[in-house]
């Protein structure tokens, strides 16, 4: 109680400049690995095709390090649809269909003062009834198929479906992705995608900051 205000003032601004400036910290192995050297690699996720890493399968394990090194760019998402009506206010409902928990933490961290997604008009809701977008994390577990469809049905139109993390996109090495049930409009790769990547995709999907 005593000095929370003082502590806040002393701490100064912690919030990132992103998306108006560059990200302050990028977790290297969550970005796209690109070939920088010679040598054979076997990818445990079968993500390398014709010398290129397919981000929908890459699990950011770094087993290709050496011949490959991380690019360090966070804007690796595939934005299949932009819904400009959500620009000023974008409410996201997160559903965990079978994740390891890392994606959940990365989405959760967007609400802290460092990322402060609220300043960009992005809010997280606890019911699909108020949601503009469904953010799916994790592989599609059998038991979560019904809840996922119920959540999707409960959402008002227009609605976006976003798959965050390799598990949700393709299932990665652990199972199947969400595509069996829903077509994802926005794909956010990474294992887990860094918070900046998720934030970038959210901002782009709603038509800009």
């Amino acid at each position: 109680m005593r000095n929370w205000v003082l502590r806040g003032v002393k701490k100064g601004r912690v919030t990132t400049r992103f998306p108006y400036g560059e990200p302050e910290s990028v977790s290297p192995w969550s970005t796209r690995p690109v070939r920088t050297g010679e040598g054979d690699v076997t990818c445990p996720a079968d993500a390398i095709e014709d010398g290129e890493v397919r981000m929908d399968r890459c699990i950011s394990c770094g087993r290709c390090s050496g011949p490959f090194s991380p690019e360090g760019k966070i804007d690796i998402s595939v934005i299949g649809r932009v819904e400009k009506r959500f620009r000023k206010s974008f409410t996201v409902f997160v559903i965990d269909t079978g994740s390891c928990g890392a994606c959940n933490l990365e989405v959760k961290t967007l609400s802290n003062p460092i990322y402060d997604a609220h300043r960009l008009g992005i809010n997280f809701t606890s019911t699909p009834r108020h949601a503009d977008a469904l953010l799916v994390v994790g592989t599609l577990a059998e038991g979560m198929k019904e809840p996922l469809m119920r959540a999707y049905e409960a959402m008002p139109e227009p609605k976006l479906v976003m798959a965050a993390g390799t598990c949700a996109i393709s299932g990665g090495i652990l199972g199947e992705g969400v595509s069996g049930l829903l077509k994802a409009d926005v794909l956010i790769p990474g294992c887990p995608p860094t918070p900046f990547t998720i934030l970038d995709a959210l901002v782009k999907a709603k038509g800009g900051p």
Binding site: I95, P147, R150, E153
Partner: peptide, 8 residues
Amino acid sequence: VPVWNNGV
């Protein structure tokens, strides 16, 4: 739409 009951 059906009642939203936390997914079930």
